[in-house]
């Protein structure tokens, strides 16, 4: 990350630029398709089209948005919905920490982003833009272009997909008959799947899942998810600490 001034191995010519734009667009299209299902699920959960669109435009973080409407659909209170979405979004803070370092302009015009550009960069700080930016380090120019191209592509197509899904679902009859209530956990599972990379991830997921189900009879809707996840993460951190000591 410090080799900002050294030329990268890959030539930064028109072809490299084209490939960044093409990859950003293809990521946007894939994400836009999944936004269609988010829009439909959100309306099925009881939000209206404008509220659904507000989540995609303002909250703009897929897992948090799914969690928000999922908790609302399950009858959880607003506090539980907001808390679950906020906890899922914590990772974006760490992405921002990393991006603030790599999005700096190359010398001599160096320094961190300021004002509106920084606010825009913060808003675009999500899984996809961070992954694309990191894939182009340490070439600062390519990293910045990859971040902004992916950020814009995902933001525009995510919102377009959301609108299509929300308007489509709003014109449908009973969502339960259409199986949209099965689509919600399937969406969570699809977000979880790529993160189950090793046995400790599986163990963590199982403990959180079983914990949440055991707590479900005694806690208000929405709370068991947070409590089960907190217990699992707390246990994992304790185990790691003990094995490190």
């Amino acid at each position: 990350m410090t080799g900002a001034t050294t030329p990268s191995a890959a030539p930064d010519g028109p072809r490299a630029r084209d490939s960044i734009a093409a990859r950003a667009l293809s990521i946007g299209v894939a994400v836009g398709a999944y936004a269609v299902s988010f829009g439909a699920i959100s309306v099925a959960a009881g939000l209206d089209v404008l509220q659904t669109q507000a989540l995609s435009a303002l909250l703009f973080s897929g897992a948090s948005q799914f969690a928000f409407v999922g908790v609302v659909a399950a009858g959880g209170g607003f506090v539980a919905a907001v808390a679950t979405a906020a906890l899922l979004g914590l990772r974006n803070g760490l992405y921002g920490l990393h991006l603030a370092r790599v999005l700096t302009a190359p010398p001599p015009g160096g320094g961190r982003l300021r004002g509106w550009r920084r606010a825009g960069a913060a808003h675009f700080t999500i899984d996809e833009s961070t992954a694309m930016a990191m894939a182009h380090e340490p070439d600062v120019a390519a990293t910045r272009r990859a971040f902004w191209a992916t950020g814009w592509s995902v933001f525009l197509l995510w919102n377009l997909g959301t609108l299509l899904g929300a308007v489509g679902a709003a014109s449908l009859a009973d969502p339960a008959v259409l199986g949209l209530d099965a689509a919600i956990p399937a969406g969570f599972l699809a977000l979880l799947w790529p993160r189950l990379v090793d046995r400790s991830a599986w163990a963590l997921a199982l403990v959180a899942a079983v914990g949440a189900l055991l707590l479900a009879p005694v806690l208000r809707p929405g709370v068991p998810v947070i409590a089960g996840a907190a217990l699992a993460v707390g246990g994992a951190l304790l185990l790691e600490r003990r094995s490190a000591a």
């Binding site: 969570f188 979880l192 993160r195 991830a201 963590l204 403990v207 959180a208 189900l213 998810v225």
Partner: peptide, 26 residues
């Protein structure tokens, strides 16, 4: 601690959400 919690939380929350929304009803 912050870094590790932020990496573990999405896995735990998504697993708990999947389980509850798959097989819990009122």
């Amino acid at each position: 601690l912050v870094r590790r919690s932020a990496a573990l939380l999405p896995i735990a929350l998504l697993a708990a959400l999947t389980a509850v929304q798959t097989c819990w009803s009122p």
